[in-house]
Amino acid sequence: MKNNTIIILIISVVVLTAVVYTLTETETPEDYIEKIEAERERQFKFIRFNYESPLTDEQKLKFKKLEFYPIDPAYKVKARMILIEERKVREVPLTDGTKEKYLEHSWAEFELNGKPEKLLLLQAISEPDKRNFFLAFADSTSAVETYGGGRYINARQDGKNSITIDFNMAYNPYCAYNPDYGCPLPPRENLLEIAIPVGEKNYEK
């Protein structure tokens, strides 16, 4: 009897600990907005001050801010990863006419505003962390309010068959600031017909 009581107590403690952990790890809307704003501030400081910034010294003197859409949590989606069985190495064209090699890894399937969407997840050949993916996309805002060559998202697998894609974190490639850089263009599979009105807007030179 005592053994049963001890087991029940242990199970109760484990369950309670799990519940407390889940509650404390749950991100509030305020925390989410604060996280996005902090990342935007980090981007600004990098572009404005870092020696690896794509801006020229002359551009840095005139640079005041980055332009973003308002934050919308609806554009943070959990996608199902569909592995590509026969993975191929793709030569992705760059804006300067050269090419870079990426592995066609998987499809990310998700719903956005009630409609199914699908994007191709690429992985750099030299990527050491196999849970990190490169996502380049374009949408109907491209060449209008956002950079015509598309935007990027750094996506990380967060489950056995799932990955979170946060379009609020979409950012411009270096060539949006300086045409001397060669940047990968979105694959044809990632040319969305819908608008993605979140993330970074085009850089006004």
Rank of each mutant, 00 (worst) to 15 (best):
E145V: 06
V144M: 00
E145F: 05
P116N: 13
Q123P: 02
A138Y: 08
Q123T: 00
L119I: 12
G114Y: 14
Q123G: 02
A138W: 02
A138C: 11
K115R: 14
T141M: 05
Y147W: 12
F137S: 07
A124T: 08
S126R: 05
A143C: 01
G114T: 15
F137D: 01
F133K: 03
Q123R: 01
F133R: 01
V144S: 12
L120Q: 03
Q123W: 00
L119R: 00
E117K: 12
R131C: 12
L122I: 02
E145D: 08
S140H: 01
D129I: 15
N132G: 13
P116G: 12
E117I: 05
E145C: 00
A136Q: 15
D129L: 15
L122Q: 00
G114S: 13
A138S: 15
S142P: 02
L135S: 14
I125T: 13
Q123F: 02
K130L: 07
A143P: 00
I125H: 11
E145A: 04
R131F: 09
S140V: 09
A124V: 12
D139Q: 02
K115Q: 15
A143K: 04
A143M: 06
L119N: 01
Q123Y: 00
F137C: 01
T146W: 01
L121N: 06
N132C: 08
P116D: 12
S142L: 10
P116R: 11
N132D: 14
P128I: 02
S140F: 03
S140G: 02
R131N: 14
R131G: 07
Q123C: 05
T146C: 09
D129E: 14
D129A: 15
F134D: 06
L135F: 09
K130Q: 10
D139R: 04
E127W: 05
Y147H: 10
S142W: 10
K115Y: 14
K130P: 03
P116H: 12
D129P: 13
S126D: 04
D139E: 09
L121Y: 07
R131P: 05
A124I: 08
